[in-house]
Amino acid sequence: MIKVDHLSKSFNKTKAVDDISFEVAEGENLILLGTSGCGKTTTLKMINRLIEPDRGKVFINGQNILDQQPEILRRGIGYVLQNNGLFPHYTVAENIAIVPQLLKWDKKQTEHRVSELLEKLHLDKKYLSAYPNELSGGQQQRVGLARALVTDPAVLLMDEPFGALDTVTRSKIQQEFKALDELKRKTIIMVTHDVQEAFELGDRICLMDKGKIVQNGTPAELLFKPENDFVRDFLKDQRLQLEFKAIKLKDLVATEGVFELHGESLAADVSLWHVLEGFKFSKTENLHIIDQNKKKTDLGFEDLMSAFYQYKKRHAHE
């Protein structure tokens, strides 16, 4: 879907991005992770040509973006900024409708799409005619997301989208973000310096340092097959939490059945972290697996933990 090919960019002789290449499959969520100054934001901004590369190419759907007119290109890519970048002189409705207006959408169509998004993002209709400064930080970021999604673009670029929020709001919006059906279909590249966030939201993580990609892989690959000491050191803090987040339920339990917790079904690719968070740790509590024959198997906290240790052991020896 997106192919970045030997991309380089220098600012005043310092190499911000140094000959990097990666690909993002359709519907995949790639995280560009790294400390500030590692070149992740520069890389992101070269994909919608907010920054023009010195060398290299970027293809979206096989088309070289450098051959397209930048304005037209950008109207087809959703973009979410760290500080939301909402227009203070536009109402919420007008802010969300910026790209439809540029594309000269019909008024009714725009209105319909705006209220649909508002509902999906749990924003009350009364905010439509409010100005951004009348909203809370979390609400502003939701509007920023709605603005990026309004034309249902296939590609979404996000630059530290939750970076400016307090921890409570951030994890709440992250959960909503994961649950949003609109986003599941999209190819997303997201920049963050927050390792937990990367493991929470990313299908794949591209760890960058000094303008180069150190390792590009799934969260589990980064944890259990680190390329070098830099990767190991980067993931050192709160490693257990990262492992819980990196390991999916399907990695621990091989079954054709359906998972169920507290009477609600769970997808096989939810993280162990998510399951553990759902546990209330009462003695009788179990995760249920229901197979085709409606047979119910129970898995307790201890079962999951022992499966986790076996998984770790297995990978450590590979």
């Binding site: 290109l73 950008r74 109207r75 900024l81 500080n83 970048g85 227009f87 203070p88 790209v99």
Partner: peptide, 23 residues
Amino acid sequence: VDDSVKEAAVAMGMSKWQLLFKV
């Protein structure tokens, strides 16, 4: 004018003149 607002306007696909007159 706030840089992030200008960046947003450009990233939404506004031309130079649209940026000037609308933002």
